[in-house]
Structures are given as structure tokens and as C-alpha cells.
């Protein structure tokens, strides 16, 4: 068998119990059968190619792992000095105060100013509903107002484009 003994060893270790010579990554069955069927001259380059394949696979795994790992210790740390810290704190607080002030002004603008704040809440909520005649009057008036608004039209009288200063 000559050089094929290595493949024989492999075969034995694969069939028997795992020992120190057992491969952790098993060669795929296609390449394995190729090794067994090839003669003594063909087996040497194929086993070398297999080894190279394995090496490249291992290095690919290593590369992938390295890509997935973030090395925290390699990142530069920026130490904040005490006075810098105080400066920043004052800057942020002043910025916050100005933002809060403008926000409260905005809120006041958007606040419902129609209603006046009443202390006797229950009396207002329990009061008699608006009378039917008042409601009818409001409906008629708003209908008339809406109808009048619909009748508003723009009457075209003069040219839309007027020339200035041209004799």
C-alpha cells in the first residue's frame, strides 16, 4: 500500500474509538472515497490538497471570529477631566433651561384658551343641556353663514398681468 498507510490509519481511527489521532473535522465522504480509490501516486497530492483545504477552512473560521469580536481594550478611551466635566454640566443645564423655556411658551400658545378655569366642576357638567330652540337657532345661523360663504366668488375685472413703466 506504500503511502496509502496514512489513509489506512485514518480509516482505522474513524472506525474505532476516538484517540489523539482522530480528526476533529471529518473529511467529507466524497474526498475520502477519492483517497481510498486512488493509487499510491495519486494519494499524495490529494492529501496535501485536503490539508490545504482544511487550513483555509480553519483560517476562514478564525477570520470570521475575529470579525465578530469587538476588542474593547483596543478602543481609545477619552478621560474626562474634572474641570471639563463641570464645564459640560453647566453648558448642558443652560441649554436645557433655554429649551424648557421655549417649550413652555409654545405650550401656552397651544393650550386651550377658549374655556375659563371653573372651580365648581360638577355644577357645570351637570347643568341642563342647551335648549332645543337655542340649538335650532345656532344650526340655522351656521347654515346661513356656510351658504353665504359658499356664494363668495372672485369676479374677474382687470388683467391678471400688468406692465409697469412701459410706454
Amino acid at each position: 500500500m506504500g503511502c496509502c498507510c496514512s489513509s489506512e490509519d485514518e480509516k482505522l481511527s474513524q472506525d474505532g474509538d476516538p484517540d489523539e489521532r482522530t480528526r476533529l473535522i471529518l473529511p467529507n465522504p466524497v474526498s475520502n472515497s477519492q483517497v481510498n480509490h486512488s493509487d499510491s501516486y495519486g494519494s499524495v497530492p490529494s492529501s496535501i490538497a485536503q490539508q490545504a483545504d482544511e487550513q483555509s477552512a480553519l483560517s476562514r473560521i478564525l477570520m470570521q471570529t475575529a470579525n465578530n469580536v469587538i476588542d474593547v481594550s483596543a478602543i481609545e478611551t477619552h478621560m474626562v477631566e474634572q474641570h471639563e466635566y463641570i464645564d459640560r454640566a453647566t453648558q448642558y443645564s443652560s441649554r436645557l433651561t433655554s429649551i424648557c423655556h421655549s417649550a413652555s411658551v409654545l405650550n401656552k400658545l397651544h393650550r386651550p384658551a377658549l374655556l375659563v378655569d371653573v372651580p365648581a366642576l360638577d355644577r357645570v357638567l351637570s347643568a341642563e343641556p342647551i335648549s332645543a330652540s337655542d340649538l335650532q337657532f345656532i344650526r340655522n345661523t351656521s347654515d346661513h353663514a356656510a351658504a353665504a360663504m359658499r356664494k363668495v366668488v372672485v369676479t374677474h375685472k382687470e388683467d391678471l398681468v400688468v406692465n409697469f413703466g412701459i410706454p
Binding site: P112, L114, L115, V116, D117, V118, P119, L121, V124, L125, A127, P129, I130, L135
Partner: peptide
């Protein structure tokens, strides 16, 4: 003179809205 109540009246029910202690009821 100011509004104390806003009523939204439908055929069978209505919403009564008022403001008290900075809250809308």
C-alpha cells in the same frame, strides 16, 4: 365674559367639556 362649557350635541347624546384645575373634563 368667558366660556365655561363646550357642548357637542348629537341626536341622542352629547359631550360636555369644561376646564377645572388646569384639567379638561
Amino acid at each position: 365674559q368667558q366660556f365655561k362649557r363646550m357642548s357637542v350635541v348629537f341626536d341622542t347624546f352629547m359631550y360636555v367639556v369644561t376646564l377645572s384645575n388646569k384639567r379638561v373634563y
